[in-house]
């Protein structure tokens, strides 16, 4: 792949957001009267039967590209899953490579994912997932990066070194979900008070235990 081609492809994720108005206009035409009644159901059906959404396909392609870049650098095992979070390319990185991969993508000339927009933790029955939405202010990429950790002990290396703005977000996740961010400079509770027992956003949290 030549440099130009890659550039052209990597700028693809910009298109959906820039053309959102056009999409809306097109959507009004194609969905018509029958889809109006139950948009949710119609959408679910469309996802199963109809040809897939081009925006989703583009996002999947971008996720694959990121995977290749990461695999080249960190080996096959580093990327556990690629896919799409709604219309955003999603790449799930192995926990051990998490900070290195984020830093690598932050400085990589083709990606420059330098602006961390949102970081969230979610408690699933078998694992806790950390989600990071990062944006490239220069190239326009918008990517969802993920990693997973066991629920007990929940431990993820910290990203504060590459994105200092995630300091409080990580503290919040530690406070509410009980994920220990190793290497975090100041891991204390932030919303709840010192001495509070438990982590309220965990699904098995009970107030009166």
């Amino acid at each position: 792949m030549s440099e130009e081609e890659r550039k052209a492809e990597t700028t693809a994720p910009q298109a959906p957001s820039a053309a959102s108005a056009a999409n809306r206009a097109a959507g009004a035409g194609e969905s018509g009267a029958k889809a109006e009644a139950k948009p949710a159901a119609a959408k679910a059906q469309a996802a199963k039967a109809a040809p897939p959404d081009p925006r989703v396909e583009a996002a999947k392609a971008v996720a694959e590209q990121i995977k290749q870049v990461l695999v080249r650098e960190f080996g096959e095992a580093a990327v556990e899953e690629t896919g799409v979070a709604h219309r955003t390319p999603m790449v799930r990185v192995r926990k051990q490579d998490w900070p290195k991969a984020v830093e690598f993508l932050r400085t990589h000339p083709d990606w420059k994912l330098n602006y961390a927009e949102c970081m969230a933790g979610t408690d699933y029955p078998d694992y806790i997932e950390i989600v990071l939405y990062v944006q490239s202010t220069e190239l326009g990429h918008f990517v969802c990066l993920k990693t997973r950790t066991d629920r007990d002990p929940a431990e993820v290396p910290s990203l504060v070194a590459s994105h200092p703005g995630l300091n409080w977000e990580e503290r919040e996740i530690y406070d509410l979900l009980g994920v220990r961010f190793t290497g975090h400079p100041d891991l204390r509770r932030i919303m709840m008070w010192e001495g509070f027992k438990g982590h309220p956003l965990r699904k098995d949290y009970r107030e009166w235990d």
Binding site: A40, K43, A44, A47, H86, E117, C118, V131
Partner: peptide, 11 residues
Amino acid sequence: IRVPKGEYYSG
């Protein structure tokens, strides 16, 4: 309102 399974972020 039932949101289809998945995850969504918009700012």
